[in-house]
């Protein structure tokens, strides 16, 4: 160790040169840019000094919050019930129709149940919040 530091005149000269530079404040280890980047990224993810104050609701606000949540649950439950009832009705009416068709006309029943490769149409649109510039496509020409 000793040998390596005082090993040559060159090394001694360089040590003397650096010790003359005075740096104010606490000395930080120099970071390579890649390390700095990782530190930056972690600082964005970490919770330190970024969390807001905890919500402390008074009794009245707590009751309000509970009432709102209950009202929402009741509302949703009613919607789901209505939807389920509709689904059940639809299922029963399909079943009923098919059994009726089997009785009335077995040929039509066979035709209705014939396997066919159906493709989902690419033209079908998913609803968006605002309509497109042209809300409906009128110029459709059937395939020949």
């Amino acid at each position: 160790m000793f040998k390596t530091i005082w090993g040559s005149d060159k090394a001694v000269a360089s040590v003397a040169a650096t010790s003359k530079i005075f740096i104010r404040g606490k000395q930080k280890a120099a970071m390579t840019p890649s390390t700095q980047r990782i530190v930056n990224q972690l600082s964005a993810l970490s919770a330190s000094r970024k969390q807001p104050k905890l919500l402390s609701l008074c009794n009245e606000d707590l009751i309000k919050n509970r009432t709102i949540t209950n009202a929402w649950n009741v509302y949703k439950r009613k919607l789901f019930q209505k939807r389920d009832e509709q689904f059940e009705k639809q299922y029963n009416s399909i079943k009923n129709a098919m059994e009726d068709l089997k009785q009335t006309s077995p040929e039509l029943f066979e035709l209705a149940n014939a396997k066919e490769q159906k493709r989902f149409p690419l033209e079908m649109r998913i609803p968006t919040d605002f309509p497109p510039n042209q809300p409906w496509v009128y110029n459709y020409a059937p395939k020949k």
Binding site: I94, D100, L111, A112, E116
Partner: peptide, 16 residues
């Protein structure tokens, strides 16, 4: 008219 592009979901009737 024939200028209608439509998609038939199922060949089976859904109601009678």
């Amino acid at each position: 008219g024939e200028k209608i592009n439509y998609f038939n979901v199922s060949n089976t009737p859904c109601h009678v």
